[in-house]
């Protein structure tokens, strides 16, 4: 009994130390996503270079792709463009979801598609263009339904339109191998009787 009494504080201390130590390496931005394993939300939004064409969730079915939330105003996104362009050259499907920041009416700002087209074209010419096309979410409705907290964020979506991964932050050399493996597994032709998730 006496021995046990001696060990209780030690055990408590060690438990607390391990818990706090592991906390040092956890990512406070990573708080899970409610969207993984869910189908991509319904939407109908204009394509950047052809705004009269509305892209819907139905149009994106049938192939595995990365949906990359970005904006020219976002420095990390701009830094990410080069790496994403390399991925596109490797045959990865990347679709852009353009995050339009709220225009401040008090400063006389208003949203103009033509100005955005020019700005995006300039930026992509400078940094590389990884996108098959861009969807413009002026009122951040799809962005809201996807639980996006900022930019950049990337969703891995399978051929059935189900979200398989939600990455907060940029895609880079460090985290791409893991995401790449998931992408490859989804993109591989399904063999009959093969293992299913």
């Amino acid at each position: 009994m006496r021995k046990l009494q001696f060990f209780i504080p030690l055990a408590l201390f060690l438990g607390l130390a391990v818990f706090l130590f592991s906390g040092l390496f956890s990512n406070p931005r990573d708080h899970g996503s409610a969207l993984v394993t869910q189908p991509i939300p319904m939407f109908s939004l204009p394509e950047l270079n052809e705004p009269t064409r509305l892209v819907t969730h139905q149009d994106l079915k049938g192939k595995v792709y990365l949906l990359n939330v970005w904006g020219t105003w976002c420095a990390t996104c701009n830094a990410e463009l080069g790496f994403l362009t390399k991925l596109r050259q490797q045959g990865i499907n990347i679709i852009g979801l353009y995050y339009v920041q709220p225009a401040d009416a008090a400063f006389g700002e208003k949203f103009e598609m033509a100005a955005l087209q020019q700005e995006v074209a300039r930026k992509l010419a400078e940094q590389g263009d990884p996108y098959q096309f861009n969807i413009v979410d002026e009122h951040r409705s799809l962005i809201f339904d996807l639980g996006v907290t900022g930019a950049p964020e990337t969703f891995l979506v399978d051929a059935q339109g189900v979200i398989r991964h939600h990455l907060v932050g940029d895609i880079n050399e460090q985290n791409w191998p893991e995401l790449s493996a998931k992408y490859a597994a989804l993109a591989a032709p399904v063999t009959s009787g093969g293992p299913h998730e």
């Binding site: 708080h31 899970g32 996503s33 409610a34 969207l35 809201f144 996807l146 907290t149």
Partner: peptide
């Protein structure tokens, strides 16, 4: 909100 942004 939870179905979009999770329990967080």
């Amino acid at each position: 909100m939870k179905t979009r942004y999770g329990d967080f």
